[in-house]
Design a protein around this nucleic acid. Sequence first.
DNA 1: CGCTCTTTATGATTTAAATCATGGTATTAC
DNA 2: GTAATACCATGATTTAAATCATAAAGAGCG
Lengths: 226, 226
Amino acid sequence: MQNINKLHVIKQSFIFSRLNDEELVELAALASERSLAPGEFVFWDGDAPDWFYIVAEGQVKALKHSSSGKEFIIAFFGPGEMFGEVAVFENKPYPASAQAVSETRVLGIKREDFLSFLKNRPQVALRIINVLGGRLRDAQARSRDLAVERVEQRIARTLLMLSAKLGTTLPFTRQEIADMSGTTTETAIRVMSRLKEGGIIRSVRGKTVILDELKLRLLSEGPPQV
Amino acid sequence: MQNINKLHVIKQSFIFSRLNDEELVELAALASERSLAPGEFVFWDGDAPDWFYIVAEGQVKALKHSSSGKEFIIAFFGPGEMFGEVAVFENKPYPASAQAVSETRVLGIKREDFLSFLKNRPQVALRIINVLGGRLRDAQARSRDLAVERVEQRIARTLLMLSAKLGTTLPFTRQEIADMSGTTTETAIRVMSRLKEGGIIRSVRGKTVILDELKLRLLSEGPPQV
DNA sequence: CGCTCTTTATGATTTAAATCATGGTATTAC
DNA sequence: GTAATACCATGATTTAAATCATAAAGAGCG
């Protein structure tokens, strides 16, 4: 019944995909499922880190607000991806909020259950290290970009990053792209209008298709005037 | 002889501090020492990830350059801290350069040696997860700051972050603070001159002392006009 | 000791991007 | 089917911070 479904989800996720059947069953027994409507929050920035999550279906975005209330999107997570793990490992409040984008189902595992499960599974730990390493790399590259690149390049990089993960069709509004690139909606619209004119992207309401990745890459790497 | 020294360094580091004597000796045998003059590079952005490092003595900074050559300082590492690990785990080129700040000694362990050592040490893996988790949290918070906060607040946060790690006396020039905060040297000087006038910091050439952490925290959290 | 180099300082000017403002056009809601 | 809402678009204005320019003072060096 429902546990079969959980098994499937767990098996699908990179960090658990190498578990044997017995372990999968054990883990599935620890997991509870939760359904979320679009816009609903899985947890809020500052909540106690009681649960470790995997996306089963749909999409979750991690976001943080500035002191003045502006939103910044840290990442999107799709089926099979874990989130909330940093807080769980450190036993500190979640450092960001997690919000369902679409109709979404997640699997949650209680902090203690997860940690004790992990204690005897070095392979899983190594996989987690891999995932965290990759995210750290991305986060640092992104910091650098936000610190020293200008908007046009930041937006280009955001688009490239997204397309590397999701393919050439990106289901995001200008507002969301702005919130990922550290700029305003208006500026994102302006920049992307130019990209459209240049034949680099095509877009309709809430959806952007990357047409010319090469040009986009050039743009992201150097100022046009060089 | 020299191995005693290595042992000491390894034991000092958070991720290895729980190893037993036998394991420590084994690991020390794998480690080679390297001395660096101030300004010398341990590795460059893009190099093959052949070595995993721990700082033995001195200080190493991780930095990245923008397409236009501007420098961005990702982090400083002191004695007992690991660096270069992300590249080693992912087996991808180092994502940033590592440069000795002062007269520095590091211990290097070959990628394969380190990974096979790790395979049978889940406790070490869990510790690494902890460190990576903490760094990821920091990197994401920093991205948010760079994306949505203004210079004054970013600089305040940089100072707070540094003082949380190193104490109230910070051995950095305005230029370095600027490179960590994603701004220019002039702007960092201006902002810090104001902090000085406000009695929040005291400073002499290349050194800054935080006098009023509370005020600094207020400044970092909200716009003064509110 | 004088010379050079680095760090701090400060003013003037420019510029990229934010902000303010307004309008059109799909989509969804009632 | 009309109203309300979300998204895209563009112009005008403002502003924060970069850039350009110049200078002084502390450190290091021959």
